[in-house]
């Protein structure tokens, strides 16, 4: 009797909660890990599947690629900085409980995200072009495509910057701010010495949240510049989508890896700063 019970217990040791991870595991393997391995394989092989580093050499020996990668970097960094500069005061205002009861105002800032970003971008393009044409007599997207791209990216990714900052601002230690002003700090000093240090984790995650998508997106750049500019996303699309040479997928894979590495660095960077932020949390420089 006891033996059978024991056996039963043994066989029924099926971990139900653990098994709920299975769909996720299957998804990750099929759609994240397998493609990554494929990209790795392509990046280091030639058309016949033999190991080679030629693809990397091809990519980095072309000055155009450097220019494109550099330009993407400049666009992404400027977008990130501008997004944070705009989002910071907005988040501060939104975090004021009196003003933003029930967080309705936050939703107003998130509302545009309910519309597909391509449609929003096309709309923004007409708006920007119409405005500059009536004011200065030229279309911004035609005469200054890079400025137009940054405007488009800031517009599309601003909510990604507002949300983490807003969440961080909700958690601000009010007593510390009060103490600072009680002890004679002027409003500017209060900001610099207490509020900004306390929101660093929010700033960092806002930065990565905007930097990552701007590095990889190219539709906004295409629309806002009438297809006249290339950023790394276009390059990759070109190698996978429109080229039909034997080696094009391999070169495209190298470019994808380059992009992944840049994004990977930004995440490492975030973690590093985040750690420091944790140590300094509540501290005064």
């Amino acid at each position: 009797m006891e033996a059978t019970l024991k056996q039963k217990r043994k066989t029924s040791r099926f971990n139900f909660r653990g098994s709920l991870c299975m769909p996720y595991a299957v998804f990750m393997t099929l759609f994240v890990i397998a493609p990554l391995l494929l990209i790795l394989y392509y990046a280091f092989t030639d058309a016949n599947g033999v190991f080679t580093l030629d693809n990397w050499q091809t990519v980095f020996s072309s000055p155009e690629n450097w220019k494109v990668i550099g330009m993407t970097f400049v666009i992404s960094i400027s977008t990130t900085i501008i997004c944070i500069l705009i989002a910071f005061p907005i988040a501060k205002i939104l975090s004021n409980k009196k003003l933003n009861k029930n967080a309705v105002l936050v939703y107003i800032f998130l509302l545009p995200m309910w519309i597909n970003f391509v449609i929003r971008t096309i709309g923004l393009k007409s708006l920007v072009d119409g405005a500059t044409e009536s004011m200065f007599g030229y279309k911004l997207t035609v005469n200054y495509p890079y400025i137009a791209i940054i405007i488009g990216m800031v517009y599309d990714y601003l909510p990604f910057a507002i949300l983490p900052l807003y969440n961080q601002m909700l958690k601000l230690d009010k007593s510390q701010i009060e103490a600072a002003s009680d002890l004679g700090a002027n409003p500017f000093q209060v900001y610099v010495k207490t509020i900004i240090p306390m929101t660093i984790p929010g700033i960092v995650s806002a930065a990565t949240m905007t930097f990552m998508p701007t590095m990889s997106s190219y539709v906004i750049a295409n629309k806002m510049s009438n297809n006249t500019t290339l950023i790394i996303g276009n390059l990759i699309q070109n190698y996978f989508g429109t080229r039909v040479t034997d080696i094009s997928n391999h070169i495209g894979s190298v470019l994808s890896l380059v992009m992944l590495i840049i994004i990977g660095f930004s995440i490492v960077f975030e973690k590093l700063i985040d750690k420091k932020g944790d140590e300094k949390k509540g501290g005064i420089w």
């Binding site: 072309s62 006249t228 500019t229 290339l230 390059l235 070109n238 429109t242 080229r243 040479t245 094009s248």
Partner: peptide
């Protein structure tokens, strides 16, 4: 010449 023309096209776009 396909690859050469494609490279040329990228250079044109990158220079725009």
């Amino acid at each position: 010449a396909q690859a050469d023309v494609e490279d040329m096209w990228l250079r044109v776009k990158a220079a725009y």
